[in-house]
Structures are given as C-alpha cells and as structure tokens.
Design a binder for these strands. Structure first.
Length: 574
DNA sequence: GCCGTTTTCGGCCCGACTGTTTTCAGTCG
C-alpha cells in the first residue's frame, strides 16, 4: 500500500469515529493522515527498514495506529476499518467535495434515508426527501444539490500560476475601495503552493460591511456561500472559492499569520503560545486579556521567541525546530537568476526565432541563455539531427557577434534537450554531444516502464560524461499525468555521485521537481538549475514560478547554478 | 488515540457563519 492509500484509510477511520460522536480520536486519525500526506518517504519503506518501531516514530502514530498501518502494509486491509465500513457502508470519498456536508450529516443521511453514495444523495435531494429530515430545510437541500451539480462540472484544485492574474484582479479591486486599508492574499497562494484549493484574502478596514457588500457583488460570482460582517465567501464561475476576512488594524499580523497557515504550522504556534501562558488567535497574541502582539507577523514570532518564518516554509517540515536555532535557509529570489538553461525556438517546437527569444532574455536582464531544442528522436516536436544542430550553431554564433558589436552584455549558448532512449543511452552520439556547451537529458517516451527499469534508465543517462542536466525528472503533469515510477532517493544520490544537475522546470503544470524532492536535493548536496522550458517569450517569465517552487524546497541562492555568472556556472558542469 | 525535560493520566487550537433552531449543532478553515 502506498502513502495515499494508507492516508485515505486513516482519514476515513477518523470520519467514522466522528460520526459516532467519539471525542478526540477523530483528531488523532486526521492528524496522522495529514502527516502521511506530507511525508517524504513511503511508509512502506519505513516499515520495511525499521519495522513497527520506526512506524511509531512518525509523529502522531502510537501503538494502535501503528498496528493498523502494519496490517495495511502486510494484508492490504484493516479489520477496524472494515468493521466501521460495515456499520456505516457509505462511500465517504464521494462526499468529500460536497460543501457543507460533513461526518454528522453523512451519518444522518444514511440512518434516515439509507443514502450511501452521491447518486443516491442526488436522487433524494431531487425528490425533496432531505428537507423533511430534522435539522434540515429547503435551503440545505438546495445547497447540496448545487454542490453536486458543480462537482459534476469541475472539481479538484487549481494550478496557482494559471489563476494568479484573476486573484490579483480581485486584490486590485479591493485595493481601490476607499474603505479598505491593507489588502493581502493569504493562504496557500501566499505559501506559493503549486496548486490551491481556494483563495484567502485579508483586509483591514474600519467599515467592514461596505467591503463585504462590494466583495460578494464583484463580477464573475457564481454563488455567495457566506456573507457575514467580518467573513464572506464566494464561488466564482470557474469554480474557485474565494474567502474574504476583515480584521481591525491591530490584528492584521495575527490574522495574516492565521490565514496564511498552514494549519499544522498554526497549531504548533498556538501550542507554543500556550506553553508560555499565552493565547494566540486571529486577533492577536494575548496574555490574559491583554494583547501583547498581533499588529504584524514579525512581533508574534518574536514574542514566541522565534525569528520570522517565510510563508513558503510554514508547512511543519521542521521549520520550527530550525528557527529556534536561527538556522532557517535564506531563500532564493527571482532577481538572483542570471540565466535560463532551457529555451526552445522555432528550430524545433518553439513558436519564435532564436533572436526573438534572446531579445526577451535581454529585456528581462538575463546575462545568458541556452538554446536547447529537441533532438531528432522527438519527431513530433521537429527534433534536430546532427546536421541541423550544426546549422543552428552558426546562427547562434552570428547572434552573439551582433550583440557583442552593440556592446550588450549577454551570451547565447549552444544546448540541447536530448531524448533519453529506453535503455538510458542518448538520442545523439557522444561525439556530437561533446560539442555542445551544455547538454540536458529528458524522457519523452515510455513513461510506463517498471520502477527498476525507469530508475536504471535515468541513472545510465547520468553516467554519460556529456549529460550535464536531467530535465523535468519525474515527468508529471499536474492534474493530468502522474510522475513516472522511479526511485527518487537512488536517483538523487546518483546525481550527487555523477555531478549531474537536476532541473526545476518552471512550467506551471510541470513544476518538476516538486518541493519535497527539491528539499531532498538541497539536503543531499545536489546542484539544481531553475529553467523556464519556454516555447514562446511569454513562457520565459514562468521562471518566477520555478523560483517559488524552489523556495518551497528550502533553496538558497548557492544551490542554483544559474544564479552564478556564466564562467562560474560553466565550471560547475561536467 | 496520542503525548509528556512539570506529567504514564489528563489534557487535546480556536472562532465565524449558516441554517436550523429559539440556544445550538455542524461545518469549515
């Protein structure tokens, strides 16, 4: 069983216990499910290497849950889980995205109407049976129906980079209001997560009602979910939920901290406050009834005896242990990038010429760019053979000469995105690969090899003395395609051994490596490049999202080779 | 069910909003 499956069972056990009104236990299961969701390592491996003792070291896992996990790994099932399923045979996962329907409601629906899945819920809603239940009414029935309708149309999370402009527009509108003072996007958007479930906006204002009235009436609203004095929530036509909170100025920092999350980071902060005899909520840090901090985030951390923690780090991945010793990383910024090592042109599947792409790089203030078109194996992308590459080099030389004569400090380099073939050999010969300034290797075929084969394939490519970088290592497409099956730890340690650089591909639906893997690279001393993989000039600005991803992986400037000046960067290659 | 450099027992983060009630349970973040 993999982590996702184990997580699901534990989370559902928690929901079942909640249905049965059992106190505290649901939280215990939920907590472990959250932890496993964010775990870097497969629980399966932890168990294989260290047995049940190692499993118990996972925070929140004790005697009982460790037993359940062992059972899941050994037998693929859990007696406790099965017993609960038998008692209330409901497809919990189908109800997950129905707004306003939680454990207690699911239980009532089952007990009174024998509703076990979404289909039966929809039928009952349409026949007006729900409104007759105690505690329900016409409105709750309608809400459930709307929620089901919506789920059919969309579902899932949004890629942050693709909806950022829409969010910024809402932010701008709020900023223009006379009644608002501070306006800031909090939540997972501020933590720069690759995908976001909803948007949290925070506003300070002396006239919250006006702000709320404006907000629920902005254009593009499909439905008003809540409309209160200090909190409102809307659903936009594309399905995105946006929450707005208004707080007084003196609570701005506390509220920002609270609504930035993550939830687990906040919970730990509150516990820290409690240890000091204080209370932390979204209105401030309090000693008895007196507010001692909360105007800004920094003073809250300070009063808790901590340095400021950047939003990207607030995921309970060890940041609160490190911050106590002043050992948090100094995160990379987008201005630190001096070059882009992965650019396509109309020589293969890009849409613009070498010169057009290069000019955009100059405009962005980059000092160098690698032209890295596809190799011949990728025929769908008009990949280049040796002859065409040699022709392309002449054009690159010509451009560099022209630039130099104009006195512009910028250089184009000769690169390639070379296909890694099934057996790990490269699409072009070593002889020609040796002539490029920089060689990137990519997998564009045979995504479904076994874990052993795929891992071997990539490791062999790394062994090639000319392959400097592995591009988009795991091949995932967010919301569309899973990563290939690889042994990430083995590959990262092989990258270190062979001095191969790993790419953070900045394309919003790739963002490959993902943050956990980036953190592993940093910890393992593997060098990284942040590249745009641009096929048009607009894509070149995606570098920003690659940097965001890097920051979530605890990356400092020094970990990234394209923060170095050209000469030094080239020295870091094989 | 989990956890502990005060604790192996007695605590467990906290508040807003809705829809149903007529003081509150359920949900959400």
């Amino acid at each position: 069983m993999n982590n996702k499956e184990i997580e699901k069972v534990l989370r559902e056990i928690g929901i079942y216990l909640e249905m049965k009104d059992i106190p505290f236990k649901p939280r215990a299961f939920e907590r472990v499910a959250d932890t496993i969701n964010e775990l870097n390592e497969e629980v399966n491996n932890i168990y294989k290497n260290g047995g049940i003792k190692a499993v118990k070291k996972i925070p929140g896992v004790g005697e009982s849950i460790a037993g359940i996990i062992e059972e899941l790994i050994k037998k693929g099932k859990s007696k406790d889980y099965q017993r609960l399923q038998k008692e209330i045979p409901v497809k919990l996962s189908e109800f997950e995205f129905i707004e306003g329907v939680g454990p207690k409601t699911i239980k009532t629906l089952y007990k009174k109407l024998k509703i076990k899945n979404l289909k039966e819920l929809e039928r009952a809603t349409k026949s007006g049976k729900i409104r007759k239940l105690p505690g329900f009414g016409v409105k709750s029935e309608l809400n459930i129906l709307k929620s089901i309708d919506f789920l059919k149309k969309s579902g899932g999370r949004f890629i942050r980079a693709y909806i950022l402009n829409q969010i910024k527009e809402i932010e701008l509108g709020l900023n223009k209001l006379r009644e608002t003072n501070k306006v800031i996007i909090a939540g997972s958007t501020r933590r720069k997560k690759e995908t976001i479930g909803d948007v949290d906006i925070l506003v300070t204002s002396k006239n919250p009602k006006k702000v709320m009235d404006y907000f629920v009436n902005i254009s593009g609203v499909l439905k008003i979910i809540a409309h209160g004095d200090t909190k409102s929530s809307i659903k936009l036509k594309n399905g995105l939920n946006v929450d707005l909170r208004v707080v007084p100025e003196k609570s701005y920092g506390a509220a920002l901290n609270y609504f930035t999350g993550s939830k687990n980071h906040n919970i730990e902060l509150r516990k820290l406050a409690m240890d000091k005899g204080l209370k932390l909520n979204e209105y401030g840090l309090f000693k008895d009834k007196k507010q001692i901090a909360g105007r800004n985030e920094k003073e809250i951390y300070e009063k808790l005896g901590l340095n400021y923690v950047e939003p990207e780090l607030r995921e309970m991945r060890g940041e609160l242990d490190l911050v106590k010793n002043n050992k948090l990383p100094k995160l990379i910024k987008v201005e630190d990038l001096k070059g882009d090592l992965h650019i396509h042109t109309d020589w293969s599947d890009g849409s613009l010429s070498i010169e057009e792409m290069a000019n955009e790089g100059i405009k962005m203030g980059l000092e160098y760019m690698i032209i890295s078109d596809h190799s011949k194996g990728l025929t769908v992308a008009n990949g280049l053979n040796e002859k065409r590459f040699q022709k392309q080099w002449k054009e690159i030389d010509k451009f560099n000469k022209k630039i130099k004569s104009k006195g512009i400090k910028f250089k184009l380099l000769k690169g390639i995105e070379c296909d890694i073939l099934k057996d790990g050999s490269m699409d072009l010969s070593d002889k020609i690969l040796s002539k490029f300034d920089i060689v990137g290797g990519s997998i564009h075929s045979l995504f479904n090899l076994s874990k052993i084969e795929q891992t071997k394939r990539i490791m062999k490519a790394m062994d090639n003395p000319h392959v400097d970088i592995i591009n988009h290592l795991t091949g995932r497409l967010i919301n569309r395609r899973d990563a290939y099956n690889i042994d990430i730890d083995k590959i990262i340690s092989h990258a270190k051994k062979t001095k191969t650089i790993l790419e953070i591909n900045s394309f919003p639906d790739r963002l490959d490596l993902k943050d956990d893997y980036i953190k592993k690279c940093v910890e393992g001393g593997v060098k990284i490049a942040i590249n745009s993989d641009a096929h048009a000039t607009s894509h070149m600005h995606y570098l920003e999202f690659g940097v965001d991803q890097a920051r979530r992986g605890w990356v400092e400037k020094n970990n990234i080779i394209n923060t170095w000046p050209l000469k030094k960067m080239l020295k870091m290659l094989k």
